[in-house]
Design a protein around this nucleic acid. Structure first.
Lengths: 335, 335
DNA sequence: AGCGCCGTTGCATGCGTATGCAAAGCCGCT
DNA sequence: AGCGGCTTTGCATACGCATGCAACGGCGCT
């Protein structure tokens, strides 16, 4: 009952229960035809042998692994772990196993990363915002259903869901201008990232529509350090901005630290800082970050629905979903 | 070449290359006997069909999946993602795939969680410090090599690696006393966690040895919120402590925020705060947390070595590893 | 020329499970 | 009693690959 060298198989259970291997299999298959008596005999035998069906062998015949490839970049910032946590919990609750595919630093997917896909994942969810279009095409060529998070793509057989970045950027622009800010700066994330492209251009466009020039622009990479560095640069000059919109929360934290600790600025009196994502940390008193809430929980729930629908019908028309973000007012901006 | 409904198999490649399926298999097996000419013909055919061996089918015969079960709790705090990131990168670099097993809130491992193990993982790495001993025994009964991180266990066939918590706690006690603190408080983490038991008792013992009473004790759960809450309680009374040692960094952040923002205390002048772990965030200027460095990178490297050794020889005697932590002096403590 | 050896190759089989098919049982109905 | 229909069961096979075994061929050697 304890440390047998080999795990029990369906054949072992069948022998003990005095039935055929097929009967055992049917007891563990939803909706199969087994009599109540056989089932209980089999389950009892299975219990005694600590038998559990071999998912590997099962998937060989069913052509379903219940493994979902999850393409992620680093878990560095506060956002990715939050998303990953939510996503993996959701997958588990629907009986699916996430299989991690790490994007490499160059945003490509090398052999090591692709190795995970050799496990015959039923679908692939891409959450790394920076995976190159070429890599995406490579995934599509696999013939596996593909779900893109964090980028909006119109392509055959690819579903995507992505927070309405332009709306979020517009909300910030309007709120900042309405509150009387006049020297508004923007600190962008990694320029190759889809979200950056949308947020940056929408923010510029919204300000232009309001007749407000953009006072200064910085280029970060979504990391705390880059936010710190760029904020120092942007806020050092003579015509210091009175508001700074950052492409994500991590950079906003860096900017906040730079402004308060390194430059001795009072936030939000002398400088308003706004982030994007609303990670859990944004609510911590030391930050109290005013930011745009990226509705991760809703997004993941929707994403899982899209996934199930796609698995049920691989030929259904592709879906594009753009949930709306919302402005969360806290203490880092005078709004 | 693009969206074929079914992926190519070794038989397809064999047909195209004019060889047997065995030959194809040998081309993808390390150290198998194939002539140079056959190999190139096969590889060319494989390339044209985008063939990659089916890891599922392969593992059925080799009895090796290269899947490693990774038992984790929540990815809430800053530490777990850091550890997970390091661990999964390390596994990938050694050709292993992490398969996530989520511990449920009650620290047990329910059916959903165990489902991951049906994928015939080669080994299980437990990183959740709060998984109950009963659950650990359940894992052992699976007959799968088990590696425990974050707890020290002496048991047959179980390797474990765990930062030397008592040493870390002693370092803090000595440094605080040496720096002249006289009212030292301790804020512990989840009492059921192994690390909490070691850190708490070693801290008490070390203070006692130095003839220093413990001024106050709080009980948190390793979360930021609990650190915030307990700090408010501990620091509100009349005889306010002049030093607070927290069971991990997350609680220290919460305590720091409570002390500075809610209570208006000057840190470290009026209160020294020390954490444990040294997560990346501890170095951020807004925290600048003095803490004990839990050498995660080294630990993971060692853990991976232990894993490979265990896989090579399941009957080798169990190993217990206790890497030494180190005190990192930053700005949150007067030391 | 004949022998033996080694590097290659294909054949056949097994890994653990799911499932189509047919056989077997069972029931109620006429 | 006989029949049709339904449920339950076992048999056989397939899933995609790795691998032991035997067959084959070429080579160097005597």
């Amino acid at each position: 009952m304890t440390g047998e060298r080999r795990r029990a198989t369906a054949v072992d259970v069948a022998r003990l229960a005095g039935v055929s291997q097929s009967a055992v299999s049917r007891c563990f298959t939803e909706g199969a035809s087994v009599s109540a008596e056989t089932r209980s005999r089999v389950l009892e035998a299975a219990r005694r042998l600590s038998y559990r069906p071999n998912a590997i062998a099962r998937s060989l015949t069913t052509r379903r692994t219940n493994l979902i490839g999850v393409v992620m970049g680093d878990l560095d910032g506060p956002f990715q772990p939050y998303l990953f946590e939510t996503l993996t919990r959701g997958l588990a609750s629907r009986g699916k196993q996430p299989l991690l595919v790490r994007g490499d630093p160059a945003d490509a997917l090398d052999g090591t990363a692709m190795a995970a896909l050799d496990y015959q994942v039923d679908a692939v969810v891409v959450t790394a915002g920076s995976v190159s279009p070429a890599a995406i095409r490579g995934l599509m060529a696999l013939g596996v259903p593909l779900l893109l998070y964090g980028r909006a793509v119109e392509a055959d057989g690819v579903d995507s869901i992505c927070c309405d970045n332009p709306l979020g950027a517009r909300l910030v622009a309007q709120a900042l201008v309405a509150a009387g800010h006049r020297r508004i700066a923007y600190l962008g994330g990694r320029p190759t990232a889809f979200s950056e492209q949308e947020r940056g251009s929408a923010f510029r466009a919204a300000l232009a529509e309001l007749g407000m020039p953009l006072a200064a622009v910085g280029e970060g990479d979504y990391s705390y350090d880059s936010g710190h560095r760029e904020a120092l640069r942007l806020l050092a000059g003579p015509d210091r901005p009175d508001a700074l919109f950052c492409g994500n929360d991590a950079m906003a934290f860096g900017a906040l630290d730079a402004a308060r600790t390194a430059l001795g600025l009072r936030v939000p009196d002398e400088l308003s800082i706004v982030g994007f994502d609303d990670v859990p940390m944004a609510g911590w008193p030391s930050f109290s970050l005013t930011t745009i809430r990226n509705p991760v929980e809703d997004i993941v729930a929707t994403l899982l629905d899209m996934l199930e629908r796609r698995l049920a019908d691989p030929d259904a028309p592709p879906v594009l979903n753009r949930p709306a973000p919302v402005l969360v007012r806290r203490g880092s901006a005078r709004l």
